[in-house]
Structures are given as C-alpha cells and as structure tokens.
Amino acid sequence: MPYDAMSDQDDDSLLAAYAAGEPSAARALTLRLGPKAFGHALRMLGDRAEAEDVAQEALLRLWRAAPGWRPGEAKVSTWLYRVVSNLCIDRMRRRRGGFADIDAVAEPQDPAPSAAAAMQQTTRGQALQAALDALPDRQKQAVVLRHIEGLSNPEIADIMDIGVRAVESLTARGRKTLEGLLAPRRDELGYDDD
C-alpha cells in the first residue's frame, strides 16, 4: 500500500498496521512521528546529535511496544512525547553542571537586508534556546510543549503525568523567568523594529 493511501489514517490504525507487518505503515509512521520526536528532543536538549539519539531511542521503544499496543488507551503522539521528554530530562540531569549563558549568543552580523533578517531570526531563536536552557527541567518541558509544540494543557498534563493546574503553574513560572532573561535583549535583537 503506498504511503499516500495511509496518510489519512490515524496513528492507532497505522500502529496496528505496523504490528501486522505492513511496510508502508512503518514508512508513514516514521515520516509522521520522527520529525515530532526529533523536534521536541532538539528543543529540550539544544543539540542535534543528542536529539537524534533520543528520538531514535523513543522510536525504537514505540516499534517494540507496537505488538502489545491497545488502541484508544493512550494517544500515540502523547506517548511518544512522554518518552522523548523523559529521555531528555534524564540526559539533562546527567549533564548537569554545564550551564547556558544567554550572553554567549553571537551578536547579529551586518550583511544584506534579507540575509540579515534571516540571521536575526536565527539569533533570536538561539537566544530563546539559551533562555530555555536556563529554566529548571520541568518548567522548560512545560513551556516547550505549550508554546513551541503548541499542545494543550490537558495533553501536557498527560505527558508530564501531573495535573492541569500544575502545568499552568509551571508554564507561568517558566514564562516569567524567560521574560526576565529575554527582555534585556529586545533592542539588541531588533524586536522594537518589528
């Protein structure tokens, strides 16, 4: 079955097809879930190589869980986010001692306007990543899931295995810290020009 024919199937159906040995389901799920797993790991860890390792480990666990998967019990994407998050937090705790220095982010250069705009956006993204890296693990996890991945509070609560109110508290505290860290860089990164 071609991938296009499976693109309208939900994750549960695809995982069942995967467990039944359908190769196109393996391709479809990889293309659908791989970038999500990698993207979340990258935002949590800020390192491509580590993010690839974590996302690979999470996907491997999903493939091995597929034969025993019970449809409707948990959302596949939520399950995957949870595994990625936990693996990331384990790594972040292991490498604790390193630090994120928001002032170490490079200053914007001075090339042609369009390239300058792109570079400025890149620098803003790097500044955000540095600020996120300065947050406590759980705050960072909640803020990334909420404001970068765009998940709802109940989904985040499910992923983090906490209540919705706890999610709201974590994101509120995380935002407050981010505002404090990023406000001094607004002028420097051209936000007053936008």
Partner: peptide
C-alpha cells in the same frame, strides 16, 4: 523565532529511522 529557528530532522536521519522501523 524558536519555532522557525529549530532545525528539521535531516533526510539521512529519517532514512535511518525508516530502516530501523
């Protein structure tokens, strides 16, 4: 900016993930 900036998974990595799957 964070959403725009963070990189996408590379084609090579996705190909390896598909092979693993």
């Amino acid at each position: 900016a964070g959403r725009d900036e963070m990189g996408q998974a590379s084609g090579d990595w996705l190909a390896r993930m598909e092979a693993m799957a």
